[in-house]
Simulated scan of single mutants.
Amino acid sequence: MSSKPSEFPIVLVKNLPYNTSTDVLFNLFVKYGNIHQLRVPESKSDAPPGTCIVVYSNISNALQACKRINGINFEGRYLVSSMYQVDPSKFIKEDFVSRVNDLKKLKSEYEIE
């Protein structure tokens, strides 16, 4: 079953120092709530250097983090944070594909044509 976009809200953070460790970033972001995932791009093709994505467990934590992190001076750089907007149509398509696959599996399991 696929997740709804609001189940794991994403905060996009930019202008981070390039050499900051994931441990330091985690300690900065966990102050605002449970983190489901912290993503730091490994190459320039994934995302620009100094960017990370923080996936929170709920929307209120993500909104609080986004609001409080935006504009703070972190290791000499002013951070820019925003809520990442997920295209809902992609979730609808994924959900549809998932349901079709589940239906096929059930039909096969119960020998229904």
Rank of each mutant, 00 (worst) to 15 (best):
M1F: 11
M1V: 14
S2E: 03
S2M: 04
S2C: 10
S3V: 08
S3I: 02
K4Y: 05
P5V: 11
P5S: 07
F8T: 11
P9I: 09
I10Y: 02
I10M: 10
V11P: 05
V13H: 00
V13R: 02
K14P: 00
N15S: 08
N15P: 00
L16V: 00
P17R: 06
P17F: 05
P17M: 04
Y18R: 04
Y18Q: 01
N19F: 09
N19Y: 05
N19H: 09
T20I: 15
T20V: 15
S21T: 15
S21E: 03
S21A: 05
D23S: 06
D23A: 01
D23F: 02
V24Y: 00
V24C: 03
V24K: 06
V24M: 03
V24W: 00
F26N: 13
L28F: 06
F29P: 07
F29C: 15
F29S: 10
F29R: 02
V30I: 13
V30W: 04
V30F: 04
V30D: 12
V30Q: 14
K31S: 11
K31L: 14
Y32W: 07
Y32E: 07
Y32S: 08
N34W: 11
N34S: 14
N34C: 13
I35G: 10
I35C: 08
L38C: 08
L38R: 05
L38W: 03
R39D: 10
R39F: 12
P41I: 07
E42H: 10
E42K: 13
E42W: 04
S43T: 15
K44W: 04
D46I: 12
D46L: 10
A47Q: 06
P49C: 06
G50Y: 03
T51W: 04
I53Q: 14
V54K: 00
V54F: 00
Y56P: 01
I59C: 06
I59E: 07
I59L: 14
S60R: 09
S60Q: 08
N61G: 04
N61I: 02
N61Q: 05
A62V: 01
A62E: 00
C66I: 03
K67V: 04
R68E: 15
R68P: 01
R68H: 15
I69S: 04
N73F: 05
F74T: 07
F74L: 06
E75W: 04
E75F: 11
R77S: 12
R77N: 14
R77A: 00
Y78C: 09
L79E: 08
S81I: 12
S81T: 15
S82Y: 10
M83N: 10
Y84K: 14
Q85V: 13
V86T: 12
D87K: 14
D87C: 08
P88E: 12
P88L: 12
P88T: 12
S89I: 11
S89Y: 10
K90R: 13
K90W: 06
K90P: 00
I92C: 07
I92E: 14
I92A: 13
E94R: 10
E94G: 04
E94Q: 11
E94D: 15
D95L: 07
D95F: 05
F96R: 15
F96S: 14
V97D: 09
R99D: 00
V100C: 08
V100D: 01
N101L: 12
L103H: 06
K104G: 01
K104Q: 10
K105Q: 06
L106P: 02
L106N: 11
K107G: 09
S108G: 13
E109A: 05
E109S: 09
Y110V: 08
E111K: 14
I112V: 13
E113T: 08
